[in-house]
């Protein structure tokens, strides 16, 4: 089941806390992931899954805690270092967040040209290869407004992949999609997993989580309640609250 090796973790998250006003969203979360591992975050809305993923990429600045990439702590006050770190951590948003004024190709290319300072022709070639990898070569010259939700999310995955990330963070990648478009995005994510991509994903798609995850992490009220292999967490959790949540969501989503 697990592909865990003896290698040191790619990414570690230690004691991340975040409050908005008086409301504590994350109450000290620890997490670590090794190369090629896939961890899936589940839990009710408001559990802090999104905030956790955004904190890992410093899109939300954590109030406390430490994040290390390959053993090196990230200092978010060092702007240059932060930009470099973010290039290595791919982020997939629930709402896709494609750049609306750029074609699919432009979306994938821009990071290569502007951030990695790659030559335009080289960048175009790489971007095209990434679009083909997610099955969108023929739509390369369409604008986001001309693409379906599933296609947009696949472009956003290509955009992240083009930067050769060491870890991908996926924040409910299929929650904003029509049910019949979910499959195409799941297929792409499954391929990524098979290719050895390290991923942390928040999702409510429990069947998908079971098939993909090496470990499932159940969060509620900003803390990790329980974590373990999918079969253990989904079918035979130790914690009462975990069992309750998993039973409900399994009834809905099926095994």
């Amino acid at each position: 089941m697990t592909t865990a090796t003896d290698s040191a973790p790619v990414l570690t998250v230690e004691g991340i806390r975040k409050s908005f006003g008086n409301k504590e969203i994350l109450g000290g979360v620890d997490l670590s992931i090794r190369r090629g591992e896939i961890k899936v975050l589940i839990g009710p809305s408001g559990a802090g899954k999104s905030t956790l993923l955004q904190s890992i990429n410093f899109l939300v600045m954590p109030d406390a805690g430490r994040i290390c990439l390959e053993g090196r702590p990230v200092d978010p006050s060092d702007r240059k270092g932060l930009c470099l770190y973010r290039q290595q951590v791919g982020m997939i948003f629930q709402e896709f967040n494609l750049f609306d004024h750029l074609t699919a190709l432009g979306n994938v290319e821009i990071g290569l040209v502007r951030v990695k300072k790659m030559k335009r022709s080289q960048a175009r070639e790489r971007a095209m290869a990434e679009l083909e990898r997610v099955g969108l070569g023929v739509h390369a010259h369409k604008y986001p407004a001309e693409l379906s939700g599933g296609q947009k999310q696949r472009v956003s995955i290509a955009r992240a992949l083009a930067l050769d990330p060491k870890v991908m963070l996926l924040d409910e990648p299929t929650s904003a999609l029509d049910p019949e478009l979910i499959g195409e995005v799941h297929a792409v994510i499954r391929d990524l997993g098979a290719a050895g991509m390290t991923m942390i994903m928040a999702t409510h798609q429990i069947g998908f989580a079971r098939a993909l995850a090496d470990e499932i992490i159940f969060m509620e009220n900003g803390v990790v309640i329980e974590q373990g292999p999918p079969d253990k967490i989904l079918d035979d959790a130790d914690c009462e609250r975990t069992r309750e949540f998993c039973t409900k969501i399994t009834e809905l989503g099926g095994r």
């Binding site: 955004q54 990429n57 899109l59 930009c83 470099l84 770190y85 973010r86 290039q87 951590v89 791919g90 982020m91 948003f93 709402e95 967040n97 494609l98 750049f99 609306d100 821009i110 990071g111 502007r114 951030v115 956003s156 955009r159 992240a160 930067l163």
Partner: peptide, 11 residues
């Protein structure tokens, strides 16, 4: 989201 996506690619 446009800002966040730009930050996320390291701009």
């Amino acid at each position: 989201g446009q800002l966040q996506a730009a930050q996320a690619v390291g701009m």
